[in-house]
Simulated scan of single mutants.
Amino acid sequence: MIHSVKLPFYAKLACVLISLISFAYIFCIAKDVITPVLMAFLFAVLLLPVFTFFNTKLKFPRHLAAIICVLLFAAFIIGILVFISYEVTDMANDFETIKKNANAFISDLHRFIKENFNISIGEQKKYLDNVTKDSVKNGNATIGSALISITDLLVDCTIIPIYTFLFLIYKDHFILFLAKLINKENHAALKDILSQIKVSINNYIVGLLIEMTTVAVLTSLGLWIIGIKYFILLGLITGILNLIPYIGILIAGIITVLASLTGSGETSIILGILIVNVIVQLIDNNLLVPLIINSKVEINAFVSIMGIIVGGAAAGVSGMFLAIPLLAMLKIIFDRIESMEAWGYLMGNHVPRKFTWRVRRVKTES
């Protein structure tokens, strides 16, 4: 365990808070640079066993082994994207059917609102026209933001594989750098921290892949039962978007509802889609996440939710995805630093026994 200088409680608390605020501020102002680096670090840790196999077992040079690892990972991602694009192209052939069923569904919705809320169809259309006009006014800004987001995505897709390659190549160099920062008597603790971080990140990402696959299979099965045409594609999209906390499943539900209009615009089909999504989410949140995700990173739900919210506010979807592994790394570090053990315990998922205060009574002379 790494020992530190003894300081009063208020001094230690001030140092911790100042450090957290400083790191958060640096991350916010430099998120466009830091986020791709952190993503590449996670991918490099995931690919490290494959890199070690090519480099150590098959005696490939380090550069060649790293290139093969990155190419295999890129091929896996591209294969998924090609399958999705192929299915989406097939779905686009049913655009006229989607448009027809969407209009029928909207008409039914107008009638339902008129019958139950006494709002005429004309008033509903007038309200929609006003909303549309407001949206058109902000259309240029929205298009500009979308173009910037697409440009940033393309840049990240180019630079993250490069960063991943460099992390694999300079792995030993970075470890030696960390070893030079601390005293030799603490090298054993550093080795333990790096080993645990590697295991935690690998377990987390593998757990995410298992969760994504399970959600995709369950969703596809449910959509197939209720008769949705593109059930495999929609299940896969739901599994992928489920990796984005909170908003991912909402986007997947909207896409599924729109895709269901290729067959029929009946309300029962849309209700069936909602029921399938709710059942899958109940299984995911109450079974998959506790067994697969939380057991891997040992972070309690309160800290996880707070981290996801803060990560989303700081760096959007990427920040939400990075929140859990970063918290897991912090917990591993805190657990091995004597003065930070309390913070590591706070982040943990341990259920304590009933705590009893131990008060020492002082005898007084009468």
Rank of each mutant, 00 (worst) to 15 (best):
A44F: 03
L346I: 14
L287Q: 06
N103L: 11
K6T: 13
L128F: 13
G316Q: 04
F60N: 00
T56H: 13
N103P: 00
T356Y: 11
I226H: 01
T35H: 03
E365L: 10
F9H: 10
I80M: 07
I333G: 10
V215H: 00
L236N: 06
T97E: 06
K198W: 04
F355N: 10
L221F: 13
M329H: 07
M91L: 11
I228V: 13
N242P: 03
I244L: 02
F27N: 03
I121S: 09
N294M: 11
V136M: 04
A40I: 02
S339G: 06
V215Y: 00
I309P: 00
Y204C: 03
I249V: 12
L38T: 03
N286E: 05
P352I: 08
M212S: 11
Y127D: 15
R111T: 15
I210Y: 04
A24T: 15
S149A: 15
E266Q: 14
K100L: 12
I113C: 05
N93W: 04
C28K: 14
I255Q: 01
V155M: 08
N300P: 04
I150D: 07
S264H: 01
M320E: 10
I80Y: 02
L291E: 14
A11H: 11
N183D: 13
R111W: 08
L236A: 12
L168I: 03
M306C: 12
F174C: 10
V217D: 04
V82C: 12
I29G: 07
A104Q: 12
I244V: 11
T219C: 09
L81E: 13
D284G: 02
K125R: 12
S4F: 08
N130T: 09
K31A: 05
G144F: 08
G311F: 04
A216F: 03
T89P: 04
H187M: 11
K12Q: 11
L223V: 05
M1Y: 13
K363A: 12
S19V: 06
F334S: 04
A342C: 05
E115Y: 11
G144Y: 10
I283Y: 07
T238Q: 05
I228E: 01
F321Q: 03
I193R: 04
K6V: 14
A66I: 04
V37C: 07
A315P: 03
L181V: 14
I305N: 03
N286A: 02
I113A: 06
T132A: 13
I293P: 04
I34C: 07
F112L: 14
N93Q: 10
L42W: 04
F43R: 01
E123K: 14
A11E: 12
L194Q: 02
V5R: 10
L322F: 06
N183L: 09
K125I: 07
K57D: 01
I255D: 03
N285L: 11
I332Q: 01
I150E: 09
N202T: 12
N101P: 06
S264V: 03
L288W: 06
Q124S: 05
I197M: 11
T267Q: 12
